[in-house]
Structures are given as structure tokens and as C-alpha cells.
């Protein structure tokens, strides 16, 4: 029983932490950060281009729009790639002829760079 209460408390704390982090870090852009974003390698630059062609319209700069904010989603990149490939809810999945495996990994690299920028 004690263990269950601790697990519930931990879960609540995790949810609260995620909400707080998401709330604080959901906006990211050059004016917000007061710093220019510069892709540091070709994979990140390619990932940004592919993101712009496929994802930006619903998640502008990773912020919420038609879709939810991505900037503070704590899920691991492999789960996000799975979601991009297979879709979830109203989000469509992108087939290999739309986004190749390499491009999908480059999007992950771009998103990671954007998250830490």
C-alpha cells in the first residue's frame, strides 16, 4: 500500500514537472532566445529542411498550432520517429516515400539540436 502511494506521488510529481517544463520551454525561436540558431552539421540542416516541408505547418517552430507543442515533449526520439511513421490521432503517418529513414533520423537530430538551443 505504502509502495503504491509512493508510485502515485512519483507519477503526479512527474506529470507536474512535465507540465511546468512544457509551460516554460514550449516557445523557442530566435526572438525568444535572443540568439540565432545555426545547424552545426549537414544532418541537422537537412533535418530542419525536412521538418519545414512536413511538420512546420502544424507545429510552427515546434510550438502548438493545429497540432500540439513539440518543444517540451520528453518522449525519447525513437518514440517520436515511430509516431511520425505511423501517426497518432489526427496526426497522419508519413510513409517511407514521403520521409526516408535517413531523413527521419535527421529530423530527430534537428529536433534535439532545437531542444538544446
Amino acid at each position: 500500500m505504502k509502495m503504491n502511494i509512493r508510485l502515485v506521488a512519483l507519477g503526479v510529481a512527474l506529470v507536474v514537472w512535465c507540465v511546468v517544463v512544457a509551460g516554460c520551454a514550449a516557445r523557442k525561436s530566435e526572438p525568444i532566445k535572443n540568439e540565432f540558431f545555426k545547424p552545426t552539421n549537414a544532418s541537422i540542416a537537412n533535418g530542419e529542411r525536412v521538418y519545414m516541408a512536413n511538420c512546420q505547418k502544424c507545429h510552427p517552430s515546434g510550438e502548438a498550432g493545429l497540432g500540439p507543442s513539440l518543444n517540451a515533449v520528453p518522449a525519447p526520439q525513437f518514440i517520436k520517429r515511430f509516431q511520425m511513421r505511423h501517426g497518432l490521432g489526427v496526426m497522419p503517418g508519413f510513409k517511407r516515400d514521403e520521409i526516408s529513414k535517413e531523413d527521419l533520423h535527421d529530423i530527430s537530430k534537428y529536433r534535439k539540436a532545437w531542444k538544446h538551443y
Partner: peptide, 10 residues
């Protein structure tokens, strides 16, 4: 040239 969009005034 590459379709990249960046916020400028927000």
C-alpha cells in the same frame, strides 16, 4: 532556397 522559416518578430 531551402524553405526554412524562422520567426523574426513575435
Amino acid at each position: 532556397q531551402n524553405g526554412v522559416i524562422r520567426d523574426f518578430a513575435v
